[in-house]
């Protein structure tokens, strides 16, 4: 297996000095990401877990090149993503896609589902409207939506349907790496199971690499091969399912796993 993504000693710091601090010549920084290094193998699914504020989302944004790291580097297929420009950057943007947490909030309320998806194809060079429509239809089939949703706006779709549109949009351009930021946590239990199954199947069918950001350890255990536990901007532990859930000796990982509300059926 080859690695598709490599993060090396990444730091993202935010300044948080107030005016008063600056006058006193004090500079305070928040270390949102603090010396983080890891690699992601092609075709694997990595779970990124931790409490809110631990830097999960900042890390995803840095990988997507939405924020500039303070230091350190991120390599995608051996190319440093900070150095990408022009067409190579455009290509990187195509190959790394994101699925967002809030299914409704991440879709433009004024565009129909069909327009949302067509836009992606238009940007990536499919100029013939008829061709785009065909592509949209095949995409809808792939994510298990009926074709009549193309004329509906997000407001007229359920949360689960919106999330499927979000997934379809990410898949439209045939990406290599998908970052799913809490992609199932805003959904109801019965719908969540459908979406998790969809992600799982798509991953196997299309050979996607996935980084699944979540605070729900149950979901991560079901979906991922490898888990990275983060706390206060640092990687606390990385390991397989067994390692994290059963064998971990790290106190933070243990406290997370023990707080997980499992179904205690055995005491019946």
């Amino acid at each position: 297996m080859t690695e598709i993504l490599k993060v090396e000693n990444l730091n993202v710091h935010f300044k948080r000095s107030s005016l008063l601090d600056l006058m006193r010549r004090k500079k305070l920084v928040t270390k949102a990401i603090d010396a983080v290094s890891f690699e992601v193998e092609r075709g694997s699914c990595i779970g990124l877990v931790g409490e809110s504020g631990c830097g999960k989302s900042t890390l995803s944004k840095a990988i997507l090149r939405l924020i500039k790291p303070t230091s350190g580097s991120i390599f995608f297929e051996n190319g440093n993503i900070q150095e990408l420009k022009g067409t190579s950057l455009f290509d990187y943007r195509r190959r790394v896609q994101m699925i967002f947490q809030d299914p409704l909030g991440s879709l433009n309320p004024r565009l129909t589902a069909g327009e949302v998806l067509e836009e992606v194809f238009y940007v990536h060079g499919v100029r013939k409207s008829a061709n785009r429509k065909i592509l949209v239809h095949s995409l809808l089939d792939k994510v298990g939506l009926s074709r009549d949703v193309v004329d509906r706006r997000p407001g007229a779709l359920s949360g689960g349907q919106c999330q499927r549109i979000g997934i379809a949009r990410a898949l439209a351009v045939d990406p290599d790496l998908i970052i799913a930021d809490e992609a199932a946590s805003a959904l109801d239990v019965s719908i969540q199971a459908q979406i998790l199954n969809l992600l799982r199947d798509l991953r196997h069918d299309m050979g996607l690499t996935m980084i699944f950001v979540s605070h729900d350890l149950g979901v991560v255990r079901y979906l991922c091969d490898d888990i990275i536990v983060m706390n206060r901007g640092q990687i606390v532990e990385r390991g397989g399912i067994d390692q994290i859930f059963d064998k971990s000796t790290n106190p933070y990982t243990r406290s997370l796993v023990e707080s997980m509300p499992g179904l205690h059926r055995q005491d019946y």
Binding site: V189, S190, A193, R221, Y222, L223, M260
Partner: peptide, 8 residues
């Protein structure tokens, strides 16, 4: 459909 109790 609880992912906690599912088999991988």
């Amino acid at each position: 459909s609880q992912p906690e109790s599912a088999q991988r």
